[in-house]
């Protein structure tokens, strides 16, 4: 099975044999890849019962739960890496969720759609309406994305909260691009962050 590009990048960046929590793990595709290919002790948290069922049926360790409320149960440093993929913008308090990720694990991968991509900016400027694009495909009234953010927003939050950025990857059209003018050019960003 081929992984979504952002998941493949994260899967490649996790060292062998570590303990990983994937928050919002869906049907466990990344967990399965990490466990099979990199001998990772991979566990997941997912809200949707059907996806949790699929993941458990596939042999993964997944707990039904919510990034907003259910990260409390994990002790400090329970994992080496926490992963939050395409979920940050759906949480009630993204800053507190990041705080929790870096409590549970010293390092985290966080990926999100970039609301400052030129296509989004253009769509908003031209139409004066909330953009609907490939990565933001749902209309404003039914989107789960309640906290849209840009790459610049994320960078600022990292500085403000004294969180170290260890690595970053930017995607456009499903391909890696350079980090120059990423806030204009990237549809999607993946950050590897760590406690300072």
């Amino acid at each position: 099975m081929t992984l979504r590009t952002d998941l493949a990048i994260i899967a490649d960046a996790v060292p062998e044999g570590r303990r990983v929590l994937d928050v919002g793990c869906g049907d466990g595709t990344l967990l399965s890849a990490l466990r099979r290919n990199r001998n990772v002790d991979a566990r997941g948290l997912e809200l949707d019962a059907a996806k949790v069922t699929a993941a458990i049926a596939a042999g993964e360790s997944v707990v039904q739960g919510d990034a907003n409320h259910d990260l409390d149960a994990y002790p400090d440093d329970a994992f080496d890496f926490a992963i939050l993929s395409q979920t940050l913008q759906t949480t009630e308090r993204p800053d507190l969720v990041i705080e929790q990720l870096l409590r549970i694990a010293p390092r985290a991968f966080v990926s999100f759609p970039n609301f400052a991509h030129w296509r989004v900016r253009w769509s908003l400027m031209r139409n004066g309406r909330m953009p609907v694009t490939r990565l933001i495909p749902v209309a404003w009234y039914e989107t789960p994305n309640i906290h849209h953010l840009t790459i610049s927003d994320f960078r600022h939050l990292m500085v403000e909260r004294n969180i170290r950025v260890e690595n970053a990857w930017f995607l456009s059209g499903g391909r890696l691009i350079s980090d120059s003018a990423a806030n204009w050019r990237a549809e999607h960003a993946i950050y590897q962050i760590a406690r300072s």
């Binding site: 069922t53 360790s61 039904q64």
Partner: peptide, 18 residues
């Protein structure tokens, strides 16, 4: 129970079925 297992560091899966 699941929260206790998470606290203990055990490998736990949990789902509420309808």
């Amino acid at each position: 129970i699941v929260q206790a297992l998470q606290g203990a560091g055990a490998s736990a899966s949990f789902v509420e079925l309808s």
